[in-house]
């Protein structure tokens, strides 16, 4: 199967596929762990999308049907927006499935193609590592540690910790992708 880094196979895949990844007997233990990690991230993403939708529906329901507005439903929805964005990006990276311009690279001989792909993953690794470093500092700064959200007074580091966390996960996946391309090439 063509493993290009764009969203085509992903968008195309809306048939019933079982999400649970088949763990074959000869799977390398590294792949085994990566599969577990991806599964965990997918579950978090599912919960995020589901709860975001439910919280907004509850907001409408309480305001218009029960006539007593719920405070904070949009705040909750916005956290999950953050989670969906970064978890979704992690999943896309794990499947080497992000929007990119590939038709020029596709013209190259396959060994060179693999080289290019490895270089791209190294760049992703570098960017993610830098963002992890700054993200960790950001979430752990005293300023943000004391900050809370406006309506529900939730400590701000809780929703925001997804940023450094997802960057760390991206570091892991980019390394896994480098390994994948090197093995392939």
């Amino acid at each position: 199967m063509n493993q290009e880094m764009d969203n085509k196979s992903l968008l195309a895949s809306n048939e019933n596929e079982d999400l649970s990844i088949l763990v074959e007997a000869d799977t390398h233990w590294i792949d085994h762990i990566l599969n577990r990690l991806t599964r965990g991230i997918e579950i978090l993403a599912m919960i995020s999308v589901g709860l975001m939708c439910v919280s907004l529906i509850l907001g409408v329901f309480f305001r218009k049907i029960l006539k007593s507005p719920l405070i904070g439903t949009d705040e909750i929805a916005m956290f999950f927006m953050l989670w969906i964005t970064f978890l979704g990006a992690c999943i896309a990276l794990s499947k080497r499935d992000m929007v990119a311009v590939t038709f020029i690279v596709e013209k190259l001989p396959s060994t060179l193609q693999t080289k290019m792909k490895v270089h791209c993953q190294i760049l992703i690794l570098g960017i993610s590592a830098a963002l992890f470093y700054y993200g960790y500092q950001w979430v752990m700064t005293t300023a943000l540690i004391n900050a809370t959200t406006a309506a529900l007074k939730i400590p701000m580091w809780i929703p925001n910790m997804i940023f450094p966390l997802s960057m760390l996960i991206m570091v892991i996946y980019s390394i896994a992708n480098i390994r994948y391309y090197l093995k392939q090439g």
């Binding site: 305001r63 006539k67 507005p69 405070i71 406006a150 309506a151």
Partner: peptide, 28 residues
């Protein structure tokens, strides 16, 4: 009573309007 009033979603403000009898609703 029964009015839905747009507020900035800060607990003190929400509290005030609830006690006044309105339904405080945060709208961006």
């Amino acid at each position: 009573k029964g009015a839905s009033i747009r507020v900035t979603p800060s607990p003190a403000i929400v509290d005030f309007w609830e006690k006044v009898g309105a339904g405080p609703t945060p709208v961006p």
